[in-house]
Design a protein around this nucleic acid. Structure first.
Lengths: 180, 180, 180, 180
DNA sequence: AATGAATGAGCCTTCATTCAT
DNA sequence: GATGAATGAAGGCTCATTCAT
């Protein structure tokens, strides 16, 4: 019962993933080294390769989870909100995930598929998957591009303490003529 | 008049700037090496340092020119357009510069100030300079963020042959209740 | 009779040896990794260490079997061939083993003892063991070096479909004045 | 006249080449690291890449010089020796280059083209070039293979102090019925 | 203004091997 | 016997930058 000696050597895959998500979000893909990630996860650089085939593969895994989280937040929001408030709920959920939902989601925005040639195709597919959800929600192409573009730029100017993600969603939708 | 003979390789500074703009726009700052730029400009890596103090300094120079071009396009457009069509003209000019105006402008969008810590302050100042113009043009903060965010995301989905930059501007403004 | 059910993956030691022999023959010792061998044998890298103490130890085992096979082929040939045809039979057997006898024999030629410092002594001893047989067969030192050197270089130029190993042996011996 | 301060930083390309030849001959290609070569040449690993594009490219350069030296020795010998003694002179020259002529020649024998997949074609072409000389000298294919195979195996058993290369050549040729 | 060579730090990745389970 | 995860060392190579010429 006392043991546990050698520390929680367990689930270091999760530790790696978390560290990678945080650092990729903070410094970008090329600004983050495998050594950085290993140090942040408390393991050896070589150990990362027990879990992921390459740095690009690690990015794909982070991306997958990021897209999954955004999609899940969106789905959960839509389930709760009835007809007319749907868009409002969706945008609020999207912005909340982006701005407060942690590193995974931000990596999806910060790292462009074309930044990592050897993974471009996979990353693009993952991104498309989450944009497809919005396509069903906002069939008007240019309204959709307007909203998505503006929301995805938010991490660039958002400051905690000002308007909340939910308020920003409302303010944006207000400008495009959608009121609650 | 006799001279000029040996095609004096003049203005290699310009060649470096152009090459850097193109590559930074294509592959990002960290995805582009000094060697890449030198090769594209037809000179030696070391020669770049005759013109620029560092890679970050080279980026700042590209940024400066990029911001300058966007601002010039904007100013030219505003000069021609009278009162009510002002915003329309400004957005069209902005999108035209971004989507068809070449690499310098795109670098300003693709490379984030925080990507290059040692130049963050300067890059931020340059960006702000061009955003300030918009601030005067669109005093409503969230309308401005909506438009700027959406326009700056356009290089990600724009395909030549579809709607022209000018049309996109009109479609966007239409959605936010500004009609010609 | 009921047992044996799950295709017991028996003799994975043999699978490892075979894989190692094939890969060492193909790519050399340093060109082959423990991972390569494990993958080719259908087991885990770690499992190799259940059977062999180290990569060098595995090489020694392959070498042992390689030398054993060459020696066995030689002995069998000598047993059948009476006096004057002895040398002919021996060289034919040697070349047959080298060129068609599989990977084990080729490893003995391809991997030099000095390639693997920590096993040099053992490998040298094993090689000497099979060269000693030839020493008794061809007491003339330089004739022996001539024949052995030439035969052992054969894998470098031999192409199946041309002269057979047996014919090559005859052609070589013909050149040194030994005729049937 | 006193200066020279920072040491002979000159012709470090030659130093790299010499170091590589020595180490490749001693330990083989895969047994030698770029760091080893750099240390032996008295420079930084990175500096090697000012002169050679890759480790394989460095090997090709060594090979080229090795083949060149063997060929030169052969040509020089043939020029001096009249008709009947031609073969004798050629073999003596070949063995002298191999056994005493230094590292470059030995690399050609020690490192097999197929050891380095990314350079196999080039290495093969270089080898062929020097074997072609012998083909003209000894048109009988199997006699040629006998002699070349035996001579090229000599570095494996040669010990300075015993028979000289020239004597070995005579002893070999004696066995194949060529006497002076 | 430009060069070729060099540097030192750092890159991603693979190596043979170990060990608790 | 076998595994998955981990290690520490080492692998080849690229980086931005400097400097004598």
């Amino acid at each position: 019962m006392v043991a546990a000696a050698r520390a929680p050597r367990q689930n270091s895959r999760r530790a790696v993933l978390d560290a990678a998500a945080r650092l990729f979000a903070e410094r970008g893909y090329h600004g983050t080294s495998i050594r950085d990630i290993a140090a942040a996860a408390g393991i050896t650089p070589a150990a990362i390769y027990s879990h992921f085939a390459s740095k690009a593969g690690l990015l794909v895994a982070v991306y997958e989870e990021g897209v999954g989280r955004i999609a899940a937040a969106l789905d959960a929001a839509l389930e709760k909100a009835p007809g007319p408030a749907r868009l409002q709920a969706a945008c609020a959920a999207h912005l909340e995930t982006l701005l407060e939902g942690g590193d995974y989601a931000q990596v999806v925005l910060r790292v462009w598929p074309r930044d990592v040639p050897e993974a471009t195709a996979q990353l693009r597919r993952l991104r498309d998957g989450y944009e497809a959800r919005f396509r069903r929600l906002v069939p008007d192409k240019h309204l959709r591009l307007l909203l998505l573009g503006a929301m995805n730029a938010a991490p660039g100017w958002y400051r905690p303490g000002g308007e909340s993600p939910r308020e920003i969603a409302r303010l944006f939708l207000d400008r495009v003529g959608v009121h609650d």
